[in-house]
């Protein structure tokens, strides 16, 4: 399974080359825009799956995205603090919040549905706080980053290209950390914890520390996604970036792509973001609202029939076929 999670190096290099040339290929800006969103959501969803693959289903990644983004933007709008500096404070806040909530949940043994519901409450709470402090955050209307034109020192660019590469860098970082965790002792510890916390603890595995660590790492990477998103779009809205809908989107992406593989979450981000954009552009003005019913329907069907996700199922099928072939060859020498 581990080897199959990697694409062959040749294909990988080709994709990388393609990805680097892409923004200079003179394609419509809209394509570049969609790709940037895919990179950002791909990074966040991959980070979500650090936890998700061990069945820690977090419904508050929207909150981590939002907290980091809002703090960065508010510090800039009010104190003219460069987002390059402000983002670290935002990420620190996310790390602390995720650490406290993670520790509290794991210390008291909240697993499965209980954990998911608790994180759901966190998401709604964060969204409601932002809405409530509307004098500062502009509430439901959403906040706009004060535009400076192109100001690299303030993380603002008129061109999409810098954002494209930042989002790509973030995505690669997120995938890299996935691999690092996968190859670490922590992966073994978390697999054991997922199966049986009591047995895992009895052989010396620190349940709370392992789970909290992975939750904090996951939240911080999601927060980075939030910062890049805010600077790119220049607008944040508590309902669309934080609340349940946004938080669930990451879960959908991970599930649709396949949350147990390295590339699954990214592929899920490609499918869902692509689907959202396609539906919005094609049917958005014609069938108002019905487009989203179709979107929901497609997701439900995929969850029921492909619980391991598109990529996960594909990998599994290929693996099975290869095993069968090997078995047949060894049977008939």
């Amino acid at each position: 399974m581990k080897r199959l999670a990697n694409l062959p190096t040749g294909i990988l290099l080709f994709i990388l080359l393609f990805v680097i040339i892409f923004p200079f290929a003179g394609l419509p800006l809209y394509f570049t825009h969609t790709i940037i969103l895919i990179f950002i959501w791909g990074a966040v969803t991959t980070a979500w799956s650090y936890m998700g693959r061990f069945w820690m289903i977090s419904l508050c990644h929207g909150a981590w995205v939002g907290i980091a983004a809002y703090i960065t933007v508010l510090l800039f709008n009010f104190y003219h603090l460069s987002p390059w500096v402000g983002m670290w404070l935002g990420l620190l806040a996310v790390a602390i919040a995720a650490g406290v909530i993670g520790y509290a949940c794991f210390r008291f043994g909240l697993v499965g549905h209980y954990f998911a519901v608790t994180t759901l409450v966190v998401t709604e709470l964060v969204a409601l706080v932002i809405i409530a402090f509307r004098d500062i955050t502009e509430g439901r209307l959403g906040i706009t980053v004060k535009p400076l034109g192109t100001a690299p020192l303030y993380f603002q660019f008129e061109s999409k290209v810098p954002f494209y590469f930042m989002a790509l860098g973030l995505l690669l970082l997120s995938l890299y950390i996935w691999r690092k965790i996968d190859q670490s002792k922590m992966q073994k510890a978390l697999t054991a914890i997922e199966e049986d916390e009591v047995a895992a603890a009895s052989i010396g595995i620190n349940v709370v520390r392992n789970k909290t660590t992975v939750a904090v790492v996951s939240a911080v990477i999601a927060g980075m996604g939030g910062v890049v998103y805010a600077q790119y779009i220049m607008y944040l809205n508590p309902v669309t970036t934080i609340a349940i809908g946004a938080s669930l989107a990451y879960v959908f992406m991970a599930i649709v792509g396949g949350m147990f593989t390295l590339w699954g979450p990214l592929i899920g981000a490609i499918i869902i973001t692509g689907l959202q954009e396609y539906i919005r552009i094609t049917f958005g003005t014609v069938l108002m609202g019905w487009a989203w019913v179709g979107y929901g329907f497609i997701i439900v069907v995929m969850i029921i029939f492909l619980p391991k996700g598109l990529y996960g199922t594909l990998i599994e099928t290929l693996h099975k076929r290869r095993m069968q072939k090997a078995a047949r060859e060894s049977a008939t020498p």
Binding site: T191, A192, D196, V198, A200, A201, S202, I203, V207
Partner: peptide, 30 residues
């Protein structure tokens, strides 16, 4: 519990609790 294990107390469970997704050797490796 993990601290106590590190101090040197280990236990078996009345109803065996193996990690079922891992091989026997991997269980012991943990």
């Amino acid at each position: 519990p993990d601290k106590i294990c590190h101090l040197g107390i280990a236990r078996t469970f009345q109803i065996p609790r193996p990690f079922k997704t891992m091989s026997v050797v991997e269980n012991v490796m943990l």
